[in-house]
Nucleic acid binder design. Structure first.
Lengths: 202, 202
DNA sequence: GTCTAGATGGACCACATGGTCCATGTAAAG
DNA sequence: CTTTACATGGACCATGTGGTCCATCTAGAC
């Protein structure tokens, strides 16, 4: 477990280290990020890193949590509007343009970390799973609101739809990354719309 | 570039090394696999590895290709039947039970490698993209056959549908891996069926 | 102001790992 | 059979990396 700092400068140091590690992992991946890299970017010494994190794996676990927080943070506004056809399309458009901005690099930060850590560290896997849970929950809330307003067929299953939506998005993000082409996510986004449309009240 | 062996024992050696590397990467991931591990499992010496592969990255590129081949191989039969509603459901069932057999570990070998290599090695990224191309092409062929038999609405787009199908599958596989729960892929598979059903002739 | 627990700097270590090299053995072409 | 290019074994090297340790400094409680 990570130890928590007890003084103000300690908190700042821990924050700097975690921030630096999270950035570096996003840029170069887990394997491409050494503790010395982190140390350097965070302007911290080795003993500081090992004061707040038990070892490398522990740091990567914290990075996983921080990454999930960041991803949920960045989409919180748009995700809140995932409760109408317009809002859904706005949400999807935002995701696509985000990938365009990034030149289709990196894929989904959570999904990408999952591929790197899920089989190696159980703690990290759980942290990432929790991130996906929050994401899926946001989608489900929106779809359930849609259902509550009576816009979905009575036999529609918002929870299932939310899960499928998350899957299409993750797949689209992965294809975008591998093919370096944001149009892949666009196609996936259209799939989400089709999926939802199929559940609209006739 | 990998050098090709010119004698029979040379070919066997190269094959053993590539086989061992592919297995190890599937089991422990790219970062968790050292050349010594590979050397050991393949019963080969260091000079043999460096005779047939330029360096570690080159070996990983070859592993990417071999993995794509293996994935396409294992699903070739079922994928060939992806041209009818029954065949599609059989295909999806097979994928799900494959994940059950593996205890929901590892996710999709191609997708998993993508997360580990796409940002680090352009050659590997291209190899994996080619793997996805073949996969998508198989799906498209099936859906196009469905369309050719007039079972899809005239405005349906088999190519788009194939791409969306691949995305849902990859996303479902990723969620399965992170949540250690094959039901995630099941939900995604249901999404595929819904997507296709929505394009059936009314 | 004093005192203690926490924070910091950085030397130091063990070791795994990627990669090179050369001496020797062997396949197969002529 | 001879010859040559290929195959093999493994010693060897340089380096990056995770991790430990201790001496010093300082924040903040009393």
């Amino acid at each position: 477990m990570s130890k928590q700092p007890r003084t103000a400068p300690g908190r700042a140091t821990r924050e700097r280290i975690l921030q630096a590690a999270t950035e570096l992992v996003a840029e170069r991946g887990v394997a491409g990020t050494s503790l010395d890299d982190v140390r350097h970017r965070a302007h911290a010494s080795k003993s500081q890193v090992y004061l707040y994190f038990a070892d490398r794996d522990d740091l990567m676990r914290a990075v996983s949590e921080a990454t999930c927080d960041a991803v949920m943070q960045v989409q919180s506004d748009v995700l809140a509007g995932f409760d109408s056809l317009d809002g859904i399309e706005r949400y999807l458009d935002t995701m696509v343009s985000l990938q365009e901005q990034r030149d289709a690099r990196g894929g989904c930060p959570i999904g990408s970390l999952a591929g790197q850590l899920a089989e190696h560290d159980e703690g990290a896997r759980l942290a990432l799973a929790a991130g996906f849970d929050r994401w899926e929950e946001g989608l489900r809330a929106g779809l359930q609101a849609l259902a509550a307003r009576g816009e979905l067929r009575p036999d529609a299953d918002p929870a299932l739809l939310a899960r499928q939506t998350l899957a299409v998005l993750q797949g689209g993000l992965l294809l975008t990354q591998v093919r370096r082409d944001p149009a892949q996510l666009r196609a996936a986004a259209d799939g989400v719309v089709a999926l939802v449309r199929a559940q609209l009240k006739p």
